[in-house]
């Protein structure tokens, strides 16, 4: 599933860079603008600023498309660009420099849990499960929650998350393990047959 998405973004970016394909540009924008706004908000908090940063990055990508044709990790590139601009913004507006400390990601949006089911009994059970899981996620340490969100909601590879947050893949793995342990503890009483 991961590979498909990466290949798809790479294909879109190729269309944009080589053929000025506006439809591909729109598709890339539609797919990534939402997650990128949320990603920017990890740093800048205010929604409107985050929107502007994401728009700036996409604008720059369009302008520079012929020069940037060789980018392969399209999504990671966009996330990096949004992060850099967000940090720049904090630097110029607040004169802050200590924001690299990622333990302060308190404002991270909490990912929502969704099940797919159509039988009513299962839906009822799933709602119960969802509540337990969302509570467990909300109570995770901020950094752990952010990593979990990037992997689950944004569909990122461990490697990408590690590069983005400048931590080791091992740390991503450990944090994901912690998140899963908490989730498992939260749902165990509901799903285990007695």
């Amino acid at each position: 599933m991961h590979e498909d998405v990466d290949a798809y973004y790479r294909y879109l970016w190729h269309q944009i860079a080589a053929l000025d394909d506006q439809q591909a540009y729109r598709k890339l924008f539609d797919a990534l603008a939402g997650p990128l706004i949320r990603w920017s908000q990890v740093y800048v908090k205010q929604y409107e600023v985050a929107e502007e940063i994401v728009s700036d990055v996409f604008m720059w990508m369009w302008q520079q498309r012929s020069r940037l044709g060789s980018i392969r990790q399209v999504r990671l590139y966009l996330y990096q660009a949004v992060k850099n601009r967000s940090l720049n913004y904090l630097r110029t507006v607040h004169g802050r420099t200590e924001f690299e400390d990622i333990t302060s990601f308190e404002g991270t949006v909490i990912p929502a849990i969704q099940f797919v089911a159509d039988d009513p009994e299962q839906i009822l059970l799933n709602n119960e499960l969802r509540r337990h899981m969302e509570k467990a996620i909300a109570s995770l340490p901020a950094r752990c929650r952010l990593i979990f969100r990037l992997v689950k909601d944004d569909g990122m590879h461990y490697k990408e998350v590690a590069e983005l947050l400048q931590i080791s893949v091992k740390t991503v793995e450990t944090q994901m393990g912690i998140a899963f342990r908490r989730l498992a503890e939260a749902i165990q009483p509901v799903v285990s047959p007695r």
């Binding site: 539609d30 603008a33 939402g34 706004i37 949320r38 929107e51 990912p111 929502a112 849990i113 969704q114 099940f115 797919v116 799933n126 499960l129 969802r130 899981m133 689950k152 909601d153 944004d154 569909g155 899963f180 989730l183 498992a184 749902i187 165990q188 799903v191 285990s192 047959p193």
Partner: peptide
Amino acid sequence: YVLETLMQAWHPTPESNERV
């Protein structure tokens, strides 16, 4: 049971940003 449940819940969250 736990693993099964976690697999089932593993969907990327659908885009919730109305403006996007």
